[in-house]
Simulated assay, not measured.
Amino acid sequence: LAAGSHADPRLGSAGLMLLFHAAVTIALVQSTFMSPTFKLNTLLLLVVGSGIFAADICSRVMRGAPLLPQLAPTGGVLTMLG
């Protein structure tokens, strides 16, 4: 988020994605209403999906090229599935 405020405003979307999903991850870890297997699968989808999305956005801004084609949409879909 600091890089989004100072270096390039486009990095703010990646930082916000990570910030919001970090809060959700903490809440899910503490929850007791899901089975452990379901909780683990949900956490993996959220963490991996938001990480892939943010990494691809940062790569597009800093290098001018994506890491892989269609990686940001894939990360978004994984996050939504989680």
Rank of each mutant, 00 (worst) to 15 (best):
G75Y: 05
G4W: 00
T42G: 13
S50N: 08
H21D: 15
G4K: 02
L1K: 02
T74Q: 04
G51V: 00
T25C: 09
L19A: 15
G15S: 06
G76I: 07
L81C: 04
G12N: 11
T42P: 00
G4A: 08
A22K: 01
L18G: 11
G12Y: 14
L78P: 01
L67M: 13
F33D: 13
A65R: 13
F20M: 13
L44C: 00
V77H: 04
T74I: 06
V47Y: 04
V24L: 14
A3G: 13
C58P: 09
M62E: 13
L40D: 08
V77A: 15
L40A: 12
V48P: 01
L67H: 07
M62L: 14
V29T: 00
A22V: 11
S35K: 11
S59I: 01
H6D: 02
A65T: 09
L46G: 11
M62T: 13
G64K: 01
A2S: 10
G75F: 04
L78V: 00
L46R: 06
L1I: 05
T32L: 07
S5I: 12
T37W: 00
S13E: 09
A72W: 02
L46C: 11
P9N: 11
M34C: 04
I57W: 08
T25W: 00
A27Q: 04
D56S: 15
L1S: 13
R10G: 01
L11K: 00
Q70W: 09
S59C: 12
A7Q: 14
L68T: 03
V61T: 13
C58I: 15
S13H: 09
A72H: 04
V47D: 03
M34G: 08
G51F: 02
M34D: 09
A14W: 07
P9M: 00
F38M: 11
V24Q: 06
L78T: 01
F20Q: 07
S59V: 02
G82K: 06
V77K: 02
V29A: 12
L71N: 06
L11C: 11
L81S: 01
L44H: 05
S31W: 01
P69R: 10
L43F: 03
V47P: 02
L1M: 12
G75V: 06
A23Q: 03
M17T: 14
I57F: 07
L16H: 06
H6V: 15
L40H: 06
R63C: 03
L71R: 03
Q70N: 08
G64Q: 03
A23C: 09
C58S: 14
V77M: 11
L68I: 07
S13K: 05
A72F: 03
G75D: 06
L16Q: 13
A3D: 15
L28P: 05
S35R: 12
V48K: 01
L43C: 08
V24M: 12
D8F: 14
G4Q: 06
A27E: 01
A54R: 10
L71K: 04
A22L: 09
R63M: 12
T79V: 14
L11M: 12
G49V: 03
M80W: 15
Q30S: 09
L19V: 10
H6I: 15
G4R: 03
G76V: 03
L81P: 00
G12D: 07
K39W: 01
L71D: 10
G76C: 05
A14Y: 12
S5F: 14
V47S: 05
A55C: 10
L16D: 04
A3W: 13
C58E: 14
A65M: 08
M80I: 15
G76Q: 03
G64H: 03
R60V: 08
Q30W: 11
T79W: 05
S35C: 05
